[in-house]
Design a protein around this nucleic acid. Structure first.
Length: 491
RNA sequence: GGCAUCGUGGCCGAGUGGCUAGGCUCAGCUCUGCAAAAGCUGCUACAGCGGUUCGAAUCCGCUCGAUGCCUCCA
């Protein structure tokens, strides 16, 4: 296929830009992973699924992608003041677990959940606690460069000083003067020179369990530090793509830029990508407000919001029907709509195998295929891609009714393109859950009933035929009478 | 209060300065013993008010409304 240009919306420049990797044919991508102090909720999942799509599409285009996604296993203070509590420690206290037990428990949960969504694992999944030494080195370097100061065993980034030579706020569009003017003066005594300064290293209070030795104190690293340490370690001081949730733009990513620039004198990231929020009742899903739904609740239907359970694939399909940069509002109705659409799509896909070919095609598969790529090349526009896949459903139905014709070569191209996008790029799964052996037995039994029903129908014994149909329907087996006989499907 | 984003048909959601996605719902039709399923066809929207323009839902301004960030957060 002729390579086409990929355009990515860069949050830093607020423009769609042509994607040109630093090293031809290879992409370095870093995505901020979860803080593992509780189960991931569906909103968290949306971000990771958005970047799974990016990862998959880049790989599909032939790029060798090194995808780094961290696990934040050292908690961070809930408040910037001295009285804040680390959420991991808090959880450990509440659940009476060792902090690392908390971390382990929810890391496993995260991995299982992502696997259910058929998200590919990243190339490297580093942990914050595994990179304390690297983080300390960065703090030392920043001090050396004159952009950080130590006070009472803690080290802070000097934002004002940094802003003299660099631009603090360029990602989030904030001006330091405005931030200073709008500072809320509620801070208790603090070691910071300015409220805008952020911690690089914090001295641990006596009750703080997670602590490491450093040149300044026994303590723990600041939140923003780990991503700078791990991204530059595995991807270099300047890499291609950095992703994360929109809510991390400020302060987290802004601080990452500051740290990296202070340290390496180079802007760390060429393309900043931010995935938008999943909302529930019009409000952002969030652990702290209780406004969230868990993936497992989706799959079991055990939540009052849901009218029924939804499979991981349908949930993912629902998400991909919106663009990753748009806010998406969750509702059971919207999920049901997606589910029906998804099933129609998969039905058409299955029918591809039974389509007859002719000499010539009356439909233009080549330009349809191009439209699919155009959609994805335009900042990973999955809703347009999916709209195109539904065009293919129309093709299949028209071909089946012999209103259109297709050549063997084009049919192969159609099938291959559908395969590529449905499974490789979108990472959807066929929902044939039962094992093939069981399916065969079930099929044989239902076929027998269909035969009996057809006999009854031939004898105009509609009481019997309807009884068979309705009894099966009540067991979740739907009979479909078509031109070519009767088939069945499971609800 | 500051910064930013958004407001699209019954619902969910793309996109564009003129050719006006897609899914779901709904209606009609085809098929059918009836129904369901499936398929086909139809439903023309862009918060309000001004302005720029030959032409705006798309650009600009204002108003109203919603959301996000400014504190841990995907």
């Amino acid at each position: 296929m002729k390579p086409q240009d990929l355009y990515i919306y860069n949050s830093l420049t607020k423009n769609k830009e042509k994607f040109t990797p630093i090293h031809e044919g290879a992409v370095g991508m870093y995505v901020c992973g979860p803080t593992v102090y509780s189960n991931v909720h569906l909103g968290n999942c949306r971000t990771f699924l958005s970047f799974d799509l990016v990862f998959r599409y880049l790989s599909h285009l032939g790029y060798k992608v090194r995808y780094v996604r961290n696990i934040t296993d050292a908690g961070h203070l809930e408040n910037d003041g001295e009285s804040g509590e680390d959420p991991i420690l808090k959880k450990a206290r509440l659940e009476q677990l060792e902090p690392m037990e908390v971390v382990q428990k929810y890391t496993v949960d995260f991995h299982t959940t992502m696997a259910k969504f058929n998200a590919l694992p990243p190339s490297i999944e580093p942990t914050a606690t595994g990179h304390i030494i690297e983080q300390i080195h960065i703090v030392e370097k920043i001090i050396e460069e004159g952009f950080a100061y130590e006070k009472n065993g803690s080290v802070y980034f000097d934002v004002l000083k940094f802003n003299e030579t660099n631009n603090y706020g360029k990602l989030s569009g904030r001006k330091l003067e405005d931030m200073i003017a709008n500072t809320r003066e509620l801070s208790a005594q603090t070691d910071k020179k300015n409220p805008q300064d952020f911690a690089l290293w914090k001295k641990a209070e006596p009750q703080h369990i997670m602590r490491w030795p450093s040149p300044w104190s026994e303590g723990f690293p600041g939140w923003h530090l780990e991503c700078t340490a791990m991204s530059t370690k595995y991807l270099g001081n300047n890499f291609d793509i950095h992703g994360g949730g929109m809510d991390l733009k400020f302060p987290h990513h802004e601080c990452e830029i500051a740290q990296a620039e202070a340290c390496n004198h180079i802007s760390p990231v060429n393309y900043w990508m931010h995935a938008n929020m999943l909302t529930l009742n019009g409000k952002k899903m969030s652990k702290s407000t209780g406004n969230y739904i868990l993936p497992n609740e989706m799959f079991t239907g055990e939540n009052d919001i849901l009218s029924k359970p939804f499979t991981p694939t349908v949930t993912k399909f629902f998400m991909y029907q919106a663009h990753y940069r748009s806010i998406l509002d969750f509702s059971s109705d919207a999920l049901e709509a997606s589910e029906k659409g998804f099933n129609r799509l998969m039905d058409a896909y299955r029918m591809l195998d039974s389509i007859a070919t002719l000499e010539k095609s009356s439909i233009d598969i080549e330009s349809w295929r191009k439209a699919c790529y155009d959609a994805m090349n335009d900042d990973f526009n999955s809703p347009i891609l999916i709209a195109n896949l539904f065009e293919a459903v129309k093709f299949v139905n028209s071909l089946k009714e012999e209103k259109e014709t297709i050549s063997a070569k084009d049919l192969e191209l159609l099938k291959q393109t559908m395969d590529n996008f449905l499974f490789d790029v979108l990472g959807l799964q066929n929902n044939d859950t039962e094992t093939s052996q069981d399916a065969e037995k079930l099929s044989a039994a239902v076929e027998l009933l269909i035969q009996l029903r057809n006999q009854a129908r031939a004898n105009k014994d509609f009481a019997m035929s309807d009884k068979i149909r309705d009894e099966l329907a009540s067991k979740g087996i739907q009979l479909n009478d078509g031109k070519d006989g009767t088939t069945f499907s499971l609800n």
